[in-house]
Each structure stands twice: as structure tokens, then as C-alpha cells.
Design a protein around this nucleic acid. Structure first.
Lengths: 205, 205
DNA sequence: GTGCGTGCGTAACAATCGTTTGGTACGTAG
DNA sequence: CTACGTACCAAACGATTGTTACGCACGCAC
């Protein structure tokens, strides 16, 4: 049933997607063309159309693989449960390595396309929901350990943590000189430290 | 020296830029074409080229006017100096109105273009620097009032505040249902409340 | 051997892009 | 009146886009 030499059909699709990443990281979505991807691979556009029925399918698959790649990226081992794990998860998101920078650039660039497309927009919303949810159990552990107040809204805290890191990511991408590794880490440490004390009850006004 | 009927030359340029905003807010930069802008205004593309030498000039001017519009937008009156003013400034950034949502959508969308263009990238970096600096005097006042610790790093605090709001903006744009007005305000209040106590000295590990 | 399907390059397709050109209408200057 | 600059449209330009069609090489089936 499997044809003569399908061999590494899916492997080639991944190769193509990696070329798409390369183009996106440098030129953004505005400069993403089939010919640019083909040139990046040193092949013809015919190869691309052989593995993907349309440009949209090519982009979708590249973003799907990027999400998969993001999920499977090497991560630092959390030194302890609770807030230290939250800290490690936040640091793993930041653009502290070339690979991390490229990943974040592509994600930020994709927001233009996602905001204009209803399907991609809801997919991005779901991605954010999953990202927030991934913090939830560790915040719960932190609450159990007494690291954060018992009456803390963990869902809101997760959203705040995600907001803080991604806002930091954007600033760091646009001004790498002002946000070197140690500054980014110090800001995360400061943010995590502020989770320790005070809850929503002490809001001003 | 002023030609016969220059009349409202600059006013027309603003009209064109507003049409650009409208297209950007709906279709993003990927859907921004001269014909789409002309159709939005109900005119021909010849009008656009009459007022702008190139598409890039058109986009640049629209973004410049957007920055000007952002700076001059109606803002809530801060109830008191120090942290309440910081809180008010953060709330004024959030997408809590249709106009605010459109503004933020365009800014987020523009990041794709900005990341791929060195000139636009540094301009965006400067914009962020000015935004951070605008928080600085009020944080200083807050420090003088004893609302935040005397040893706090105000520059880092401003960067953290900007990171938090813009990360919240992005999440709210992609999932407006999960981030209604009261949730966004509650998150800002919670963030500001955490500025009150504890400094970088209490960072874990 | 003959078939047939996969893998991929070459070349062309129609569509759409930003830009340029030619022209008309209207006002003011002289 | 003529002359001229502004404002604008309609149409077309060449370049580039995503997509399609055609062709050749290779490998297995029979």
C-alpha cells in the first residue's frame, strides 16, 4: 500500500518548514514568498508545491511545527517545586539564545497575520490559554507551599505572568542592547519576587 | 509663494492616513494595498500617489500620525500623584474602547514590518524607550511618597510595567471574551499593588 | 523489457502589486 | 483672455506574486 519510495515524505516537509522559519525570522511575513523559501533551500518552487497544496498550507504547517518545536525545546531543570519552577518556565520563554530569539521573532511577526484572520486568531487565543494553563499547577503548588497568598487568583496570576514575559520579549527583540541576558533574568526574578507578598486586597484607591 | 489652492494639503494626507488605519485594523499589513486604501476612501489610487511618493512613505506617515494620535488621545485624569498616576497611565494603554482596540491592533500588527526593517526596528525601540521614560517621573514621585521602596530600580520598574501592559494588550486582543474591561482593570490594579512592597532584595534563590 | 508513480525542475499562467503616464476639471495670476 | 499649478481619475506599465502545466529522471512491479 505504501508507494514505491515515499521514504521521508514528512521529513522533507519539515525541511521546507525550517526554510520557512529562516525566511520569517529575517524578512517577516511581508517578505515570505515561495521563491524566497525555495532560494533559501536552494531548490525550485516546484518542490514546494509538490509537498504543499498552497502557500497557506505551507505557512500553517510551519507554524504548527514551530509550536511543536517550541513545546519540545530544551529547557532548564527547575531546582524546586512552586515559584522556582515558575521562574524557570518564564526564563525558558525569553530570547536568551539565538534559537530563542528566532522563535520569538516568528511568533511576534505572526501576530499580524493572526489578528487579520479569524481562524488563526482563535488558534492563537487557544495557544495563550494553554500557556496560561501550563503555569496553573505550579502556581497551585506555590500556594500550597505558602509562597503566595492563599486567596490569590491563580488564573489571573498566570495571565499576568504570561503578559509580563511576552511584553518583555517584545521589548528585548526591539532593543537587544538594552535588554541583555542578565537584565532579562533580573526582571523575571523581580517579577517572581513580587508574587510572594500581597494579594488583590491591597490594591490602591 | 504659496500656490493657488494648496488649501488643506496636510489635511488630505491625514484623511489618507486614517483610511490606512482602517485597512490595517481590519486586514493587517498583509492586506494593506494602495487599492484597498483607495477603495476605503472611495477614491482612486492616483489620489494616493498624488499625496505620497511611495507606499513606504504612506505607511511611515500613517504610523507617525498614529503615534501622534496615540500621544494626544483622551486620557483619564489621575486622581493623585505617584502610583495612582502610574495606574491611570497603564489603563490608558489598554484596549478598553473600540478606538483603543484599533490603535493596539495596528501597533501589534506593525511589529512584523518593524522586526524585518532595521530603520523601523530602531524607531520602535525608541518609541519603547520614550514610553518607559514617561513612567519614570511618576515612579520617582511614588518613591518620594514612600509608595515603593527607596532602593527600587526605577528604570527596570518602568520596563516591567510596560512589559506587563503590552503583554496584556496582546492577550486581550486575541481573546477579548476572556479579558473584559473589569478583568483588565483588576489585573492592572493587582500589578500596581505588587509594586508597593518588597524590592529586588527579596528575590528568591 | 513495459508500465507507473514519485520526486523535482522549468516554464508559463493569470492575478495583483506599486508605480507611471496622459488627461481633464478647476481655480488663481497676469 | 491666456498661462499655469493643483487635484484628481482612468488606464496602463513592468515586476512579482501564487499557482498550474509539462517534462524528465529514477525506482519498483510485473
Amino acid at each position: 500500500m505504501p508507494p514505491p519510495a515515499p521514504g521521508d515524505h514528512e521529513a522533507r516537509r519539515k525541511d521546507v518548514s525550517e526554510a520557512v522559519w529562516q525566511v520569517l525570522a529575517v524578512k517577516g511575513f511581508g517578505g515570505l514568498t515561495l521563491r524566497a523559501v525555495a532560494a533559501e533551500m536552494g531548490v525550485s518552487t516546484g518542490l514546494l508545491t509538490h509537498y504543499f497544496p498552497s502557500k497557506r498550507a505551507l505557512v500553517t504547517h510551519a507554524l504548527d511545527l514551530l509550536e511543536q518545536d517550541t513545546a519540545g525545546r530544551p529547557r532548564r531543570t527547575p531546582p524546586a517545586d512552586g515559584l522556582p519552577t515558575v521562574r524557570a518556565m518564564l526564563l525558558d520563554i525569553l530570547p536568551l539564545t539565538p534559537a530563542g530569539t528566532a522563535r520569538n521573532r516568528i511568533w511576534v511577526s505572526s501576530w499580524d497575520l493572526s489578528l487579520a484572520d479569524d481562524v488563526l486568531s482563535s488558534q492563537q487565543g487557544d495557544r495563550y490559554a494553554r500557556l496560561r494553563d501550563s503555569f496553573h499547577p505550579h502556581l497551585e503548588t506555590a500556594r500550597g507551599l505558602g509562597e503566595i497568598p492563599a486567596d490569590a487568583d491563580l488564573g489571573q496570576l498566570a495571565a499576568a505572568a504570561v503578559a509580563f514575559v511576552h511584553g518583555l520579549v517584545v521589548q528585548a527583540l526591539f532593543d537587544p542592547g538594552r535588554f541583555p541576558e542578565d537584565v532579562q533574568i533580573a526582571m523575571v526574578d523581580d517579577f517572581v519576587a513580587r508574587l510572594v507578598r500581597s494579594g488583590p486586597d491591597t490594591a490602591p484607591r
